[in-house]
Write a protein that binds this DNA or RNA. Sequence first.
DNA 1: TCAGTATATTCTTATTATCTAATATATGCA
DNA 2: TGCATATATTAGATAATAAGAATATACTGA
Lengths: 92, 92
Amino acid sequence: MQISNAEEITGFFKALGNITRLKIVAELAKNDKCVSDVENIIGTRQANISQHLAVLKKYGVVDCRRDGNMRCYFLRQPEVVKNVLWLLGKKE
Amino acid sequence: MQISNAEEITGFFKALGNITRLKIVAELAKNDKCVSDVENIIGTRQANISQHLAVLKKYGVVDCRRDGNMRCYFLRQPEVVKNVLWLLGKKE
DNA sequence: TCAGTATATTCTTATTATCTAATATATGCA
DNA sequence: TGCATATATTAGATAATAAGAATATACTGA
């Protein structure tokens, strides 16, 4: 197995290697959400959610678009993320 | 997407979220290796490789067996790991 | 323009990760 | 038993991450 873009892949794993961010990503896998939606679902302070979303964005896992007053976050590669989570979620 | 075993999955991502460990795992995806093999391929000090292998083991990514004087490390779920790396390695 | 809402940023502190150097442990063999 | 080899563990320094609190920014609507 050759890893050509090891930095990038490591970044993906770093991004998901935190339980709060994993939960955020799992929520975004269902549908796009604005920050306050995520805040309500995850039950963490707004600033913290915002920081985690920034990390996810920095590593290229999510991106966002403005929606009026809000920011709507979404997975950049939803199928990849869903497949990875599915693979890991299966019981072996 | 429901994440039932979030802790465990986060652990997997933490384990792979380091470039040295990612490289180790990519090597083990080719075939099992003893510590000195990994050391030579990765080009890092023995103690450090040993520490990284301990992290991978702690999170359940690898396991090892004794082989005489050596320890042979292997992926616990090679197919899962290979599939995940393949998914992430594809160019989109 | 001003107030209100939504989100981001900065700062501080605590925890965790990483690396090196030194040392310990375990096995194989003479 | 004693030495060499292979690997693991510990300790200590530094860096990276995470969370809360406070504050700043940006958009909306009156």
